[in-house]
Design a protein around this nucleic acid. Structure first.
Lengths: 247, 247
DNA sequence: TCAACGGCTTGACGCAGATCAACGATCCCG
DNA sequence: CGGGATCGTTGATCTGCGTCAAGCCGTTGA
């Protein structure tokens, strides 16, 4: 299971959130001191190892999470084991929005990391008196919904090459939003996970990656990192009209 | 374009919302008189004809809509014309949540109907002082996100038969939520629209429908309505474990 | 009443990507 | 540093669904 973080360098007085590197990326970033204090009071900060399960589909939905470091895969299963990964989460992402009584998805750590865990009931109660946080959550949910719509377009209508190109463009944008160049892409997930995210098989992901490599569009640095050599061409392949690409 | 509704049977004094049949299905259902009054003050109630465009992908996102009658398709296009329908909306559904500066989708009337239109800025401003409405919107967004995740599973991993069966189960659930039996299903959309929603072609939708008909799982009443003869079998085909099926 | 049109169905065929299979690369853990 | 397990790549073959094509049916409008 999940271990409580021990290395918290402050002793009860100062707010741990004030040191949190994920804050500027998180919904809690909109809160000022007092709100942050109250939010912090109902949260448990935890670390997790790669492969650890945060949420299991079908379990009672008691917790919400704010990822503060590392990466997480969120997925749904069919009875026969087919898997669809509905998203990868990184620092600043929120987990647990879309739930009724029971989780409709599973979440597992892709890499080691950490998260703030909240009791759903306490969180909802607190939300009533923190309207800014609720607004931030609504914004977040709206963005996620938009991303989900883009992914539906990808899964329903794009070819294998377009899917992979779109995926790499997404990661590039994410990197740029996080302050990077968007040229070097890290892939903390396996080929099988990319496949289950894009509605393909590992073999197809591998083949398409090779094709992009041969074409000189990308260059593999290691198995889990690559560099985009021809961004414009990649954007075209992704099915955007080159230029920008908010997809 | 959209015509202002003329047949409003009250003259400025009483709130038109109080007569609205979609209210119990809508986010505005959580509001009491005063809030409803203020919401109504910034809304235009409009009717639309089948085929009318409510929102065009790429246009400045100035409006939000609350569908009060009829049905609407929401979709995204690729440059070459491939289309993915991301949802069908009916009375009570909200349109416009997932937007930045510009609409990331188009919306067209499937059948004639009506909607309340809001200026996005005014709505957001009003939201600040109507926390109940904001909470309702967050709930709505969360449910939509969950539905989107289910659709991602469908598009990424289900077979043609599973997709159609899932679609019919969804419509059945929707009918039951609206107070119906869930046995007779209305299909206001064409086969092409079903196909673009399920990531298939019209031909495949037609073939699969025939197969379900021959198997006695469904019975076509007209081209646009059918009855579910073997709900349990349909649920199994949908890739749920028979029983219920919250997908 | 009939022609023209759009939507639907059905059949024949082709192909993108899945499946099956073999092998090479990488990563652990002792 | 060595051996087994896992992950990734590549090739050969298969297949579910797409594509192309033809015909049907209901609706509309002159």
């Amino acid at each position: 299971m999940i271990a409580l973080v021990e290395a918290c360098p402050n002793e009860g007085r100062t707010n741990p959130c004030s040191l949190c590197s994920a804050r500027r990326l998180s919904v809690c970033g909109v809160l000022a001191d007092e709100g942050l204090q109250r939010l912090s009071a109902i949260s448990e900060h935890e670390t997790f190892q790669a492969g650890e399960i945060l949420v299991r589909e079908g379990d009672p939905a008691t917790n919400l999470f704010n990822i503060t470091a590392g990466s997480v895969r969120v997925y749904k299963l069919l009875p026969d084991g087919r898997r669809q990964i509905v998203g990868f989460l990184f620092a600043g992402d929120f987990l647990g929005l879309a739930t009724g009584d029971r989780y409709a998805f599973s979440a597992e750590a892709l890499t080691a990391g950490s998260a703030c865990r909240f009791h759903k009931k306490a969180y909802r109660k607190l939300l009533v008196s923190l309207p800014d946080l609720e607004t931030a959550l609504l914004d977040r949910a709206s963005h996620e919904l938009q991303a989900a719509h883009n992914q539906m377009l990808l899964l329903g209508r794009k070819t294998a090459v377009e899917r992979l190109a779109s995926f790499l463009m997404d990661l590039s944008h994410r990197d740029r939003r996080a302050g990077g160049e968007g040229r070097v892409i890290l892939l903390p997930m396996t080929r099988a996970e990319i496949a289950d995210y894009l509605g393909l098989t590992t073999e197809t992901v591998s083949r398409v990656t090779s094709r992009l490599k041969v074409r000189g569009v990308i260059r593999l640095l290691t198995l889990h990192s690559l560099s985009i050599e021809k961004p414009a061409e990649l954007a075209t392949l992704a099915g955007l009209d080159a230029s920008d690409g908010s997809a």
